Amino acid sequence: MSLFPEIRLVPFSRLTQGGRWRVQAMRSYSAPQLLWITRGQGRITVGGVTGGYGAHNAVYIPAHTMHAFEVTGAVYGTAVIFSGMPDLELPETSHHLRIRDGAVQGEFTGLLESLQRELEGRRPAARRAVQHYAGLISVWLERQIAEAEEPVSATDSARRLAAGYAALVEKDFRSDKSVSDYAAALGVTPTHLTRVCKQTCGRTASDLLTERKISEARRLLADTSAPVKQIAGALGYGSPAYFTRVFHDRTGQAPLAFRQAI
């Protein structure tokens, strides 16, 4: 067990252990995280908005925020996971920052290296040092967000709607709510909601909802021994047979075949 459960540094190579689907599927974590990409490129979806990422990008994802991260063997970086630091001042919304200043890049890399040394060693006052380095990381993040602020654009309303939809899905995806139910809660039509989701992340509103359900189904199949019928019911599917069809359509495998292949 880690001596410092409140913060972890996880290399991207470890994020895919146990199956690349664990990072590429639509999911969320109970702790905030900051992704620091040092090499490679791909696409990431956070809160219903998809964008490309490259080297020296920092992506902040609040707790319980739906996201999916395309990561290949050519992508290198570190995930900073703030597991139990309620007093740490972190943003309430997601941010994707492209850090172009070499000095700023070096500053953050230095903070991560110093934090890693404290986490790995048994130096005096290490726990206090870890807390201070975590605080400096939060200050670095806050400053980069402030410098990156841009004027409000015409796409902001679409992004806000997509983020609102993603937040509702994350809250209620285990229910039997449909896209129409979510659209009604947001005060828009299902057609408009789908149009906006296609604009912001290239997926329909139905795709986002189904991907989140199937991601959780994969986790439950991999990490628990719950029967398929129980998993189907827990995710709002009235029929296990229908759940099996949807799961197969999305993954290319039946639920039990997926479990046996883990």
Rank of each mutant, 00 (worst) to 15 (best):
R195P: 06
K177A: 14
A166L: 06
V188K: 07
S157V: 14
I145Q: 01
V188C: 01
V196L: 05
P151F: 03
P151L: 04
A134Y: 04
D181I: 11
F173R: 03
D176M: 01
L193R: 12
G135Y: 03
D172S: 10
R160I: 04
H192T: 14
R195Q: 13
A158I: 02
V152P: 02
A148T: 03
R195G: 08
K198C: 08
D172M: 05
Q144A: 12
A146D: 03
R160K: 13
A146P: 00
S175W: 00
H192L: 14
C197D: 10
R143K: 11
T189Q: 03
P190G: 01
E150Y: 04
P151E: 07
S180F: 04
Q144D: 00
W140F: 11
L141Q: 06
A184C: 06
V196D: 10
E142Q: 12
A154F: 12
K198R: 13
L168F: 01
D172L: 10
T155G: 13
K198V: 08
I145P: 01
A146H: 06
E147A: 15
K171Q: 14
A162C: 03
D176T: 07
Q144V: 11
A183E: 05
E142W: 05
K198Y: 09
L168N: 05
V139K: 02
E149I: 15
V139N: 01
G135W: 05
D156K: 12
P151W: 02
R143P: 01
V196T: 14
D156M: 13
A185Y: 02
T155R: 15
K171H: 10
I145H: 02
Q144T: 07
T155A: 15
C197S: 14
L168M: 08
S178I: 04
F173E: 03
E150G: 11
G187A: 04
E170M: 09
A185C: 05
V169M: 12
